[in-house]
């Protein structure tokens, strides 16, 4: 650990790997990870739907675990690996999960979709064949106001079979 770690600073240069690309930026200590992604890196795929950490629209994978990027400071992510919705598809080639979302009409306005995909991706990596209850529990932290979750659950289930 660098010596400067022991000093409290108002802003700091951080290095974060996002979707395989390393970014180095100076950020204010108070900056949330979601604002770092959206405003500093222009990765606007992750969204913001609340201000209390309830909606999950900002969900990203953080060192492999799904987290809400509005409940973390960007400085905390120094040295971490982050995956966002922009990193899922291989170029224009959608993942099976993304294709399943469109086949099952699992998105309407699409605003919750990036966070939903990240939660589902984390689930399927850990548990390729989840039960319906496990699917629901895995996306419980992602609110959707359009679909009633019916087709989202279906889409995840279909890709896991």
């Amino acid at each position: 650990m660098e010596a400067s770690a022991a000093t409290a600073v108002r802003s700091k240069t951080i290095t974060v790997e996002v979707n395989g690309v390393e970014y180095e930026r100076e950020v204010e200590a108070r900056r949330l990870l979601i604002h770092f992604l959206r405003d500093d890196l222009d990765l606007t795929g992750s969204h913001i739907g609340c201000d209390t950490g309830n909606c999950g629209a900002c969900s990203v994978l953080y060192d492999g675990l799904v987290v809400k990027s509005c409940m973390m400071l960007a400085v905390q992510a120094d040295g971490a690996k982050v995956e966002t919705v922009e990193g899922l598809a291989d170029g224009n080639e959608l993942t099976d999960l993304q294709r399943s979302f469109t086949a099952h009409h699992a998105l309407q306005c699409g605003y919750c979709t990036p966070g939903m995909l990240m939660s589902a991706t984390a689930l399927l990596r850990e548990k390729p064949h989840p039960t319906e209850d496990e699917i629901r529990k895995a996306i419980q932290g992602n609110l959707c106001r359009c679909t009633g979750y019916v087709n989202i659950v279906e889409a995840i289930r279909a890709v896991s079979q």
């Binding site: 650990m1 770690a5 600073v9 108070r30 400085v75």
Partner: peptide, 25 residues
């Protein structure tokens, strides 16, 4: 959604953390 200004430190040991906690009011 937007935090007040704050300073940040990331200690690497409990000892260091305790030092920071008592150093800064």
């Amino acid at each position: 959604m937007l935090l007040p200004e704050v300073e940040y430190a990331r200690p690497s040991s409990v000892q260091e953390a305790l030092g920071l906690l008592s150093e800064y009011e």
